[in-house]
Amino acid sequence: MDNSTNDRERLLLLYLDGELKGDEEEMFLQRMKDEPSLKEELDHLRIARESVRLLGIKNKVGSIHREMMNELPEVPQRKPVRKLVSYTLAAAAVLFAIFIGIRTYTNSSISSGQLYTDHFFSYELSTSRGGEPISSPVEQLYRQKNYKAITTLPLSEDSLDVKSKFLTGISFMETGDFAKADLWLKKCLTADNSSVYKDASEYYLALAGIHEKKYDEALEWLHKIQGDPRHLYHSKVSDHFIQEVERAKELKK
């Protein structure tokens, strides 16, 4: 590498890094006008520099992402909708219209069990947190879907963290003990009303209330969720869902 090449590279780098000043900078700018290849080389180095900056951003977001995935609750998934071909859809629509018509005509009741089944889905813990140790026996059993075992653990409120309280509540729901589910989900909220399990606890408390025909309490939770667009379960509480619960409440009277 000769001296002129060295000088060219030195100037390019200094200019790229904003370290070329005064006369030297002016001379370099003039030289770029005369030498298009110099300008092109500078552009290429700038692109390399921007690519490094992009990698820096990616690394930064990646490290925060791992931290936040431990903090934030997993996003609940909608029940999969079966793909239907158009004629099947049409037939289903006709059947649905008939069904609605019959229901309206007979004023048949909406069962709390059916409402619960329609809106309940199993809470799933993340499986993609890579290498994170599972700290509590409750979580271990929950991941194995061994809900019954959780409900028979010698549970002491003081010994459980918020996550374990939440998972215990869900386990009681899974095993059909809605009174205890209600109790543990409320313990979860009482322990920390800003925890990552708050939104899920409120939704499942609403469902437990529906199952137990405690419609006033269930509606209170549902209205709270529907009134908060940032609530993680906001999209699960439609007007129709609330109307059904209100109708079930009326029919109970």
Binding site: K60, V61, I64, H65, E67, M68, M69, E71, L72, E74, V75, P76, Q77, R78, S126, T127, S128, R230, L232, S235
Partner: peptide
């Protein structure tokens, strides 16, 4: 600032992906 963005928008944005054929990993 990045953490605030996660807290405020991760739920909304990831639920879009998950509810449109994506997995939890896709959403992340």
């Amino acid at each position: 600032s990045i953490k605030m963005v996660y807290r405020q928008y991760f739920g909304l944005l990831s639920s879009y992906v998950i509810n449109n054929s994506g997995s939890q990993q896709d959403a992340e």
